[in-house]
Every structure is written in structure tokens, then in C-alpha cells.
């Protein structure tokens, strides 16, 4: 919780490329450069004043080992910058940047993510994160596992033909990138008229053994939400990261969301590895533009939503300046 360290941290700007079904014109740095430049420009922050840079990407998506190194040109890493990377959705890169800002010695961070799912076979690529002993040799892929989860929800009486059809349609493929600028306390107030303060953020993971999980519930989402302080006050808007319709049902249940009191925009075909970060960015945008007082953002990763991140954003900081 931000009160522990006594430093209020906020999202002060967000930029994303419009998702393209297939982008053959941009390689890594070309995806990253425009969104980072735009996010910095919106915050009015000079790149030389950025304290920390953290990115999320996945080499398997692009098929090129250490592709994040090639992408670094997009953030101008010379003279040398403080930089880190997660081989995950950019939402987890934001979590690392948030932790880094709490160390107290820097005031700003840039977080970005880029993904090109169109280059390979995404369900097969995602299968690389499955258990190598019991699942990988079978050739099962991520979309088939989503089908198991959807059926489990149908059997539990909480989903129907619409959700099964969503799985049969398959995962939508797109390429893109997104960037977020984080800032601390008075710096955040200087960079944004109405910063989106991170009131709580947490992520939790469940066992890798699929058959040991209750696929009809998301205990990791529930626990992350508790620790992020998501319960007690309904958010005005909630941005959920779900690839399939049944996942939304599970998430709404875990987060205790009610469509009557919380606006829940429908999911879009956002790029893998970028989609979670865009949930944080779009939720923050609603605070930044004054159309929401409190927003919830969620990001997911892994087979059948094994890992989940929840972030609560608010127009008012918890910590006194």
C-alpha cells in the first residue's frame, strides 16, 4: 500500500497505437518510439528527466531472442538510462516501476509494452508457458484450455452458448504498443492537472497445475483485489482484461462488480502483452480527463487466467502531499 512508503504515485499520461491486425511496417523500436514520445509529450516531460524505464514484451511473440534490447532505441537509451524489463504484459512492468518509485530516489518512470502476435501462431506461442512435462508433449494450446474453462463455467450454470461461441471464434490477433508515464507526489501534480493516483496495486498467481485449480473462480484476482483495496467502494469504471466472454464472467464475480453501478467497457482486440497495460492506461485516462473519480484496472496472464493484477486508481491521493 502506498501509505507504507508515504509516497503517492500516479499515472500522469498514457498513449497507445491503434491496434492493427497485422503491422508489417514497424519493427520493435518503430512500435515503441511513437507511443513513448507521445506519452512524454502529453506529460510535458523531457526524456532526459525520466528516472526509470521498464518494459514488458515477449520474445516468443516476435520469435527473436532478446527482442526487448532492439526495442530500447525507441526510448533513446543513450546516454545510458536506468532500465528494466519483464517478459510479461506491460502491466507487470508498471508494477515493477511502481515498486522502483517507492525506493524514494527518483520521481518519474516510463513504462511501455509492445507486441506483434501476427508473426506466429499465437495459441501455439502461448502454449510455451504450459507445464513442460505433462502438457507441452500433448500439443494442447491456450485456446483449448480456455475451452475447458468455459465448459466448467457452463457446467456450473454460470455461462451458456454465448460464452462457448466466444471460445470457438478464437483469440483475436493484433499488433501494437502502449506507454504510460508515472510520477510521484508534487511532480505528478505538475505533469498532470488531475493525476490518476495509484491507491493500491497487487498481483497474485495460482498453481501451474491446471487440474488442481477451481477453473470457475479466480482466487488470484480476488486476493489481488483485496490487497489493492478494490472492495468497499464501487469504481465508476472497470477495465477488465479478458480474451473470452466467460473470462469476463469469472472476473466480474471475483471483483464483485455490478454493471448497474460500474461502467465496464467491452473488451477490444488489444495486442497480447500490451493489453494489460492498456487497461491501466485507459482506466487512468478516465481519471485524467475527469470522467471518473475512481477506476479499477485488471490485467491477466497465463493459461486460464493463472495470474492476475488489480490496480485501483483515484482522482485523490491517499497520502497527504
Amino acid at each position: 500500500m502506498s501509505s507504507v512508503a508515504g509516497r503517492a504515485i500516479a499515472i500522469v499520461s498514457f498513449a497507445e497505437l491503434p491496434p492493427a491486425e497485422r503491422d508489417t511496417t514497424r519493427e520493435e523500436a518503430e512500435l515503441v518510439q511513437p507511443v513513448v514520445a507521445e506519452a512524454l509529450a502529453r506529460a510535458g516531460l523531457d526524456r532526459k528527466d525520466v528516472g526509470f524505464v521498464c518494459s514488458g514484451s515477449c520474445d516468443y511473440l516476435i520469435g527473436r531472442p532478446f527482442s526487448f534490447v532492439a526495442a530500447l532505441d525507441g526510448v533513446a537509451p543513450w546516454p545510458p538510462i536506468r532500465e528494466s524489463h519483464v517478459e510479461m504484459d506491460g502491466a507487470w512492468a508498471l508494477y515493477e516501476a511502481w515498486v522502483r518509485l517507492r525506493c524514494g530516489d527518483i520521481d518519474t518512470a516510463v513504462v511501455y509494452a509492445y507486441g506483434k502476435s501476427s508473426l506466429g501462431d499465437l495459441p501455439r506461442v502461448l502454449a510455451q508457458q504450459l507445464d513442460p512435462y505433462y502438457l507441452a508433449p500433448l500439443g494442447v494450446d491456450a485456446d483449448a484450455l480456455a475451452g475447458l474453462q468455459a465448459r466448467a463455467l457452463v457446467d456450473a450454470g454460470r455461462a451458456g452458448e454465448r460464452e462457448l461461441a466466444s471460445v470457438r471464434e478464437g483469440r483475436r490477433i493484433s499488433d501494437g504498443a502502449a506507454a504510460i508515464v508515472l510520477a510521484v507526489g508534487d511532480v505528478a501534480r505538475r505533469l498532470a492537472k488531475r493525476p490518476a493516483w495509484i491507491r493500491g496495486i497487487d498481483h497474485r498467481i495460482e498453481t501451474h497445475q491446471l487440474g488442481a485449480r477451481d477453473l470457475t473462480r479466480s482466487s488470484s484476482t480476488r486476493l489481488a483485489a483485496e490487497h489493492a483495496g478494490a472492495f468497499g467502494r464501487n469504481p465508476d469504471v472497470a477495465l477488465l482484461h479478458a480474451a473470452f466472454a466467460h473470462e469476463e464472467i469469472i472476473l466480474k464475480d471475483a471483483l464483485g462488480l455490478d454493471a448497474a453501478t460500474t461502467e465496464i467497457p467491452p473488451p477490444r482486440a488489444d495486442p497480447m502483452i500490451v493489453a494489460g497495460l492498456t487497461r491501466l492506461g485507459r482506466a487512468a485516462s478516465r481519471i485524467l480527463d475527469g470522467t471518473a473519480g475512481r477506476a479499477l484496472a485488471h490485467a491477466t496472464s497465463g493459461p486460464c487466467m493463472q495470474q492476475n493484477l488489480v490496480c485501483v486508481l483515484d482522482g485523490a491521493p491517499e497520502v497527504a502531499p
Binding site: 511496417t25 514497424r26 519493427e27 518503430e30 520469435g63 506466429g120 501462431d121
Partner: peptide
């Protein structure tokens, strides 16, 4: 020990600059 090979096929792109 067990075999644990990975084979993934891509269509890679050079980007407009390259």
C-alpha cells in the same frame, strides 16, 4: 531425462527502415 524441443514457425518482417 525427457526430450523437450520447441518448434515455432513465424513470418518475420523487416520493418520499413530495414
Amino acid at each position: 531425462m525427457m526430450p523437450s524441443s520447441v518448434q515455432l514457425d513465424y513470418t518475420i518482417t523487416a520493418g520499413r527502415h530495414l
